[in-house]
Protein backbone atom coordinates (compact mmCIF):
# COMPACT_ATOMS: atom_id res chain seq x y z
CA UNK A 1 0.00 0.00 0.00
CA UNK A 2 1.27 3.46 -0.82
CA UNK A 3 1.91 5.84 2.03
CA UNK A 4 -0.66 8.50 2.90
CA UNK A 5 1.75 11.27 2.11
CA UNK A 6 4.95 10.94 0.19
CA UNK A 7 7.11 14.06 0.02
CA UNK A 8 10.04 14.18 -2.38
CA UNK A 9 12.61 16.93 -2.59
CA UNK A 10 10.38 19.71 -1.25
CA UNK A 11 11.72 23.22 -1.70
CA UNK A 12 10.21 26.46 -0.50
CA UNK A 13 12.03 29.53 -1.72
CA UNK A 14 11.11 33.13 -1.01
CA UNK A 15 12.28 36.09 -3.05
CA UNK A 16 13.32 38.90 -0.73
CA UNK A 17 13.22 42.44 -2.05
CA UNK A 18 14.66 45.08 0.21
CA UNK A 19 13.19 48.55 0.53
CA UNK A 20 14.89 50.78 -2.00
CA UNK A 21 15.47 48.03 -4.55
CA UNK A 22 14.59 48.92 -8.10
CA UNK A 23 11.68 46.98 -9.62
CA UNK A 24 14.05 45.18 -11.98
CA UNK A 25 16.51 44.16 -9.28
CA UNK A 26 16.58 40.37 -8.95
CA UNK A 27 15.19 39.47 -5.51
CA UNK A 28 17.58 37.68 -3.19
CA UNK A 29 16.54 34.10 -2.57
CA UNK A 30 15.84 32.63 0.82
CA UNK A 31 15.69 28.84 0.84
CA UNK A 32 13.37 28.22 3.77
CA UNK A 33 12.98 24.52 3.00
CA UNK A 34 15.66 22.85 0.97
CA UNK A 35 15.07 19.40 -0.45
CA UNK A 36 13.16 17.63 2.29
CA UNK A 37 11.81 14.12 1.60
CA UNK A 38 9.79 11.83 3.84
CA UNK A 39 6.89 9.38 3.87
CA UNK A 40 3.95 9.36 6.22
CA UNK A 41 1.85 6.23 6.75
CA UNK A 42 -1.85 6.38 7.68
CA UNK A 43 -2.23 6.74 11.43
CA UNK A 44 1.42 7.65 11.89
CA UNK A 45 2.62 10.69 13.83
CA UNK A 46 5.68 12.44 12.54
CA UNK A 47 7.27 14.91 14.91
CA UNK A 48 9.24 17.74 13.36
CA UNK A 49 11.73 19.52 15.61
CA UNK A 50 14.35 22.17 15.16
CA UNK A 51 15.38 25.64 16.24
CA UNK A 52 13.30 28.74 15.52
CA UNK A 53 13.59 29.69 11.88
CA UNK A 54 14.69 26.29 10.65
CA UNK A 55 11.69 25.95 8.36
CA UNK A 56 9.39 23.69 10.39
CA UNK A 57 6.27 25.79 9.88
CA UNK A 58 7.18 26.68 6.32
CA UNK A 59 7.53 23.00 5.51
CA UNK A 60 4.02 22.34 6.81
CA UNK A 61 2.61 25.31 4.94
CA UNK A 62 4.38 24.26 1.75
CA UNK A 63 2.71 20.82 1.89
CA UNK A 64 -0.77 22.37 1.71
CA UNK A 65 0.24 25.17 -0.66
CA UNK A 66 -0.16 28.01 1.78
CA UNK A 67 3.23 29.13 0.52
CA UNK A 68 4.50 28.35 -3.00
CA UNK A 69 6.54 25.13 -2.96
CA UNK A 70 8.25 22.96 -5.55
CA UNK A 71 8.95 19.25 -5.50
CA UNK A 72 6.48 16.45 -5.16
CA UNK A 73 3.83 15.84 -2.52
CA UNK A 74 1.99 12.62 -3.41
CA UNK A 75 -1.30 12.21 -1.57
CA UNK A 76 -2.26 8.53 -1.08
CA UNK A 77 -0.21 7.69 -4.14
CA UNK A 78 -2.80 9.23 -6.46
CA UNK A 79 -2.29 12.97 -6.77
CA UNK A 80 0.66 15.32 -6.56
CA UNK A 81 -0.73 18.15 -4.45
CA UNK A 82 1.78 20.60 -5.88
CA UNK A 83 0.87 19.83 -9.49
CA UNK A 84 -2.94 20.11 -9.42
CA UNK A 85 -5.00 23.24 -9.98
CA UNK A 86 -6.16 25.44 -7.10
CA UNK A 87 -9.75 24.34 -7.72
CA UNK A 88 -8.78 20.68 -7.50
CA UNK A 89 -6.71 21.36 -4.41
CA UNK A 90 -9.82 22.57 -2.64
CA UNK A 91 -11.13 19.00 -2.58
CA UNK A 92 -8.06 17.80 -0.72
CA UNK A 93 -8.14 20.63 1.81
CA UNK A 94 -10.84 18.86 3.76
CA UNK A 95 -8.60 15.79 4.04
CA UNK A 96 -5.66 17.76 5.42
CA UNK A 97 -6.49 20.12 8.26
CA UNK A 98 -4.32 22.29 10.43
CA UNK A 99 -4.12 23.35 14.08
CA UNK A 100 -2.30 26.58 14.80
CA UNK A 101 0.12 27.84 17.40
CA UNK A 102 -1.70 30.81 18.92
CA UNK A 103 -5.08 29.43 20.01
CA UNK A 104 -6.84 32.79 20.38
CA UNK A 105 -5.42 34.43 17.25
CA UNK A 106 -6.50 31.47 15.12
CA UNK A 107 -10.17 32.11 15.96
CA UNK A 108 -12.14 34.96 14.40
CA UNK A 109 -13.09 37.25 17.34
CA UNK A 110 -16.42 38.16 15.73
CA UNK A 111 -17.67 34.60 15.28
CA UNK A 112 -19.26 32.37 17.90
CA UNK A 113 -17.83 28.99 18.78
CA UNK A 114 -20.61 27.28 16.83
CA UNK A 115 -19.97 29.36 13.70
CA UNK A 116 -16.22 28.75 13.91
CA UNK A 117 -16.53 24.97 14.14
CA UNK A 118 -19.21 24.91 11.43
CA UNK A 119 -17.14 26.84 8.90
CA UNK A 120 -15.18 23.92 7.38
CA UNK A 121 -18.47 21.98 7.12
CA UNK A 122 -20.10 24.88 5.28
CA UNK A 123 -17.18 24.96 2.89
CA UNK A 124 -16.76 21.27 2.19
CA UNK A 125 -20.19 19.80 2.88
CA UNK A 126 -22.67 22.30 1.45
CA UNK A 127 -25.04 19.36 0.98
CA UNK A 128 -25.62 19.08 4.73
CA UNK A 129 -28.78 20.66 6.10
CA UNK A 130 -28.47 23.21 8.89
CA UNK A 131 -29.78 20.59 11.30
CA UNK A 132 -27.22 17.96 10.31
CA UNK A 133 -24.49 20.53 10.53
CA UNK A 134 -25.54 21.58 14.02
CA UNK A 135 -25.62 17.93 15.07
CA UNK A 136 -22.07 17.35 13.82
CA UNK A 137 -20.82 20.50 15.49
CA UNK A 138 -22.43 19.45 18.77
CA UNK A 139 -20.92 15.96 18.51
CA UNK A 140 -17.48 17.38 17.77
CA UNK A 141 -17.71 19.81 20.67
CA UNK A 142 -18.51 17.01 23.05
CA UNK A 143 -15.66 14.96 21.70
CA UNK A 144 -13.06 17.64 22.38
CA UNK A 145 -14.51 18.39 25.80
CA UNK A 146 -16.42 21.62 25.21
CA UNK A 147 -19.74 22.03 27.00
CA UNK A 148 -22.73 22.26 24.64
CA UNK A 149 -24.07 25.42 26.27
CA UNK A 150 -20.93 27.29 25.19
CA UNK A 151 -22.00 27.20 21.55
CA UNK A 152 -22.96 30.88 21.36
CA UNK A 153 -19.91 32.20 23.19
CA UNK A 154 -17.12 34.18 21.56
CA UNK A 155 -13.41 33.24 21.55
CA UNK A 156 -12.35 35.97 24.00
CA UNK A 157 -14.52 34.34 26.66
CA UNK A 158 -12.40 31.17 26.65
CA UNK A 159 -9.04 30.22 28.12
CA UNK A 160 -6.09 29.31 25.93
CA UNK A 161 -6.63 25.58 26.42
CA UNK A 162 -10.32 25.86 25.55
CA UNK A 163 -9.48 27.93 22.47
CA UNK A 164 -7.09 25.21 21.34
CA UNK A 165 -9.88 22.65 21.82
CA UNK A 166 -12.05 24.81 19.55
CA UNK A 167 -9.22 24.91 17.01
CA UNK A 168 -8.94 21.12 17.14
CA UNK A 169 -12.70 20.72 16.81
CA UNK A 170 -12.71 22.99 13.76
CA UNK A 171 -9.93 20.95 12.16
CA UNK A 172 -11.50 17.57 12.85
CA UNK A 173 -15.16 18.31 12.10
CA UNK A 174 -14.65 17.46 8.41
CA UNK A 175 -12.99 14.15 9.36
CA UNK A 176 -9.58 14.69 7.74
CA UNK A 177 -7.00 11.97 7.13
CA UNK A 178 -4.05 14.13 8.10
CA UNK A 179 -3.79 16.73 10.82
CA UNK A 180 -0.92 19.20 10.74
CA UNK A 181 -0.26 20.65 14.18
CA UNK A 182 1.94 23.72 14.04
CA UNK A 183 3.29 24.06 17.59
CA UNK A 184 -0.20 23.50 19.00
CA UNK A 185 0.88 23.53 22.64
CA UNK A 186 3.82 25.94 22.80
CA UNK A 187 1.56 28.88 23.74
CA UNK A 188 -0.13 26.96 26.57
CA UNK A 189 0.65 26.35 30.24
CA UNK A 190 2.47 23.12 30.92
CA UNK A 191 -0.52 21.56 32.71
CA UNK A 192 -2.79 22.45 29.79
CA UNK A 193 -0.20 21.20 27.30
CA UNK A 194 -0.54 17.70 28.68
CA UNK A 195 -4.35 17.84 28.41
CA UNK A 196 -4.24 19.02 24.79
CA UNK A 197 -1.58 16.49 23.79
CA UNK A 198 -3.56 13.67 25.41
CA UNK A 199 -6.70 14.88 23.65
CA UNK A 200 -4.89 14.86 20.32
CA UNK A 201 -3.60 11.33 20.91
CA UNK A 202 -7.06 10.13 21.95
CA UNK A 203 -8.68 11.63 18.86
CA UNK A 204 -5.94 10.26 16.68
CA UNK A 205 -6.53 6.68 17.72
CA UNK A 206 -10.34 7.13 17.54
CA UNK A 207 -10.31 8.61 14.04
CA UNK A 208 -7.25 6.87 12.62
CA UNK A 209 -5.60 10.20 11.89
CA UNK A 210 -2.10 10.71 10.65
CA UNK A 211 -0.37 13.69 12.23
CA UNK A 212 2.51 15.98 11.50
CA UNK A 213 3.38 17.46 14.86
CA UNK A 214 5.67 20.48 14.83
CA UNK A 215 7.26 21.57 18.08
CA UNK A 216 10.47 22.75 19.54
CA UNK A 217 9.80 20.99 22.81
CA UNK A 218 11.57 17.66 22.46
CA UNK A 219 9.80 16.00 25.37
CA UNK A 220 6.32 16.75 23.91
CA UNK A 221 7.44 15.35 20.57
CA UNK A 222 8.83 12.26 22.29
CA UNK A 223 5.46 11.73 23.98
CA UNK A 224 3.30 11.94 20.87
CA UNK A 225 5.39 10.88 17.85
CA UNK A 226 6.08 7.58 16.14
CA UNK A 227 8.88 9.04 14.05
CA UNK A 228 10.86 12.22 14.52
CA UNK A 229 12.49 14.41 11.91
CA UNK A 230 15.13 16.98 12.85
CA UNK A 231 15.43 20.06 10.65
CA UNK A 232 18.27 22.54 10.51
CA UNK A 233 18.30 25.55 8.20
CA UNK A 234 15.65 24.10 5.92
CA UNK A 235 17.36 20.72 5.55
CA UNK A 236 16.61 17.40 7.13
CA UNK A 237 19.40 16.34 9.49
CA UNK A 238 18.05 13.09 10.84
CA UNK A 239 14.85 11.10 10.71
CA UNK A 240 14.31 8.01 12.81
CA UNK A 241 11.73 6.09 14.80
CA UNK A 242 11.23 7.90 18.10
CA UNK A 243 12.85 5.28 20.31
CA UNK A 244 15.96 5.08 18.17
CA UNK A 245 16.35 8.81 17.79
CA UNK A 246 16.12 9.51 21.49
CA UNK A 247 18.22 6.51 22.54
CA UNK A 248 20.92 6.56 19.88
CA UNK A 249 21.00 9.75 17.85
CA UNK A 250 23.50 9.59 14.99
CA UNK A 251 23.67 13.20 13.84
CA UNK A 252 25.80 15.61 15.92
CA UNK A 253 23.02 18.23 15.71
CA UNK A 254 20.43 15.86 17.13
CA UNK A 255 22.88 14.92 19.86
CA UNK A 256 23.40 18.58 20.73
CA UNK A 257 19.64 19.23 20.79
CA UNK A 258 18.95 16.24 23.02
CA UNK A 259 21.78 17.05 25.39
CA UNK A 260 20.27 20.50 25.93
CA UNK A 261 16.92 19.16 27.17
CA UNK A 262 16.67 19.97 30.87
CA UNK A 263 16.12 17.02 33.20
CA UNK A 264 13.74 17.47 36.12
CA UNK A 265 16.26 16.09 38.64
CA UNK A 266 18.83 18.53 40.03
CA UNK A 267 21.36 15.77 40.73
CA UNK A 268 21.32 14.46 37.19
CA UNK A 269 21.02 17.96 35.73
CA UNK A 270 24.15 19.15 37.56
CA UNK A 271 26.35 16.28 36.43
CA UNK A 272 24.89 16.06 32.93
CA UNK A 273 27.26 16.66 30.04
CA UNK A 274 26.07 18.86 27.22
CA UNK A 275 27.39 19.44 23.75
CA UNK A 276 27.92 23.17 23.37
CA UNK A 277 26.81 24.64 20.07
CA UNK A 278 28.94 27.64 19.27
CA UNK A 279 27.82 30.60 17.20
CA UNK A 280 24.44 31.53 15.84
CA UNK A 281 22.21 30.05 13.22
CA UNK A 282 23.74 31.13 9.86
CA UNK A 283 21.55 33.34 7.67
CA UNK A 284 19.31 31.24 5.44
CA UNK A 285 20.03 33.79 2.69
CA UNK A 286 23.65 32.64 2.62
CA UNK A 287 23.82 29.07 3.99
CA UNK A 288 27.23 27.43 4.39
CA UNK A 289 28.47 25.30 1.49
CA UNK A 290 28.34 21.55 1.77
CA UNK A 291 26.74 20.50 5.03
CA UNK A 292 24.78 23.48 6.42
CA UNK A 293 25.53 22.44 9.99
CA UNK A 294 29.33 22.33 9.61
CA UNK A 295 29.88 25.89 10.94
CA UNK A 296 28.64 24.80 14.38
CA UNK A 297 29.51 21.13 14.26
CA UNK A 298 32.07 19.72 16.73
CA UNK A 299 32.84 16.97 14.23
CA UNK A 300 33.33 19.08 11.08
CA UNK A 301 36.14 18.13 8.69
CA UNK A 302 37.38 19.78 5.50
CA UNK A 303 35.28 17.36 3.48
CA UNK A 304 32.05 18.75 5.07
CA UNK A 305 32.48 22.03 3.17
CA UNK A 306 32.66 20.17 -0.17
CA UNK A 307 29.89 17.59 -0.15
CA UNK A 308 26.24 17.93 0.73
CA UNK A 309 25.58 14.84 2.85
CA UNK A 310 22.79 12.59 1.58
CA UNK A 311 20.29 11.24 4.07
CA UNK A 312 20.06 7.86 2.40
CA UNK A 313 17.06 5.56 2.74
CA UNK A 314 15.54 3.33 5.32
CA UNK A 315 14.04 3.82 8.74
CA UNK A 316 16.89 5.72 10.29
CA UNK A 317 18.24 8.36 7.96
CA UNK A 318 21.11 10.65 8.88
CA UNK A 319 22.38 13.45 6.69
CA UNK A 320 25.95 13.47 7.97
CA UNK A 321 29.30 12.37 6.50
CA UNK A 322 30.53 11.20 9.88
CA UNK A 323 27.50 9.83 11.72
CA UNK A 324 27.83 7.95 14.94
CA UNK A 325 27.41 8.07 18.69
CA UNK A 326 28.66 11.00 20.75
CA UNK A 327 32.40 11.01 21.31
CA UNK A 328 33.96 11.93 24.62
CA UNK A 329 35.88 14.94 23.28
CA UNK A 330 32.64 16.59 22.02
CA UNK A 331 31.19 16.96 25.50
CA UNK A 332 31.81 20.01 27.60
Amino acid sequence: MSPLLSVRDLHVTFGITRAGDMPWTKPRLLHAVNGVSFDLEPGETLGIVGESGCGKSTLARGLIRMVPATGQVMWRGEKDLLAISAAEMKRYRSEIQMVFQDPLASLNPRMTLGQIIAEPLKTHRPDLSAKDRAARVAAMMERVGLLPQMINRYPHEFSGGQCQRIGIARALVVEPKLLICDEPVSALDVSIQAQVVDLLMELQSEMGLAMIFIAHDLSVVKHISDNVMVLYLGRMMERAPKRELYAAPQHPYTQALLSAVPIADPEVERTKKIIPLTGDLPSPMAPPSGCVFRTRCPRAQAQCGQTVPEAGYGDHRTACLYPGAIRAEELA
Binding site: R93, D102, G167
Partner: peptide, 17 residues
Protein backbone atom coordinates in the same frame (compact mmCIF):
# COMPACT_ATOMS: atom_id res chain seq x y z
CA UNK B 1 -1.55 37.96 8.33
CA UNK B 2 -3.64 36.88 11.33
CA UNK B 3 -3.92 33.18 12.00
CA UNK B 4 -7.70 32.96 11.74
CA UNK B 5 -7.53 34.16 8.13
CA UNK B 6 -4.78 31.66 7.48
CA UNK B 7 -6.94 28.98 9.08
CA UNK B 8 -9.79 29.84 6.74
CA UNK B 9 -7.46 29.75 3.73
CA UNK B 10 -6.04 26.40 4.80
CA UNK B 11 -9.57 25.03 5.04
CA UNK B 12 -10.22 26.15 1.47
CA UNK B 13 -12.74 28.91 2.10
CA UNK B 14 -12.98 30.93 -1.16
CA UNK B 15 -11.44 34.42 -1.17
CA UNK B 16 -14.70 36.42 -1.53
CA UNK B 17 -16.15 34.53 1.44
Amino acid sequence: GREFVEAARATGVPAPV
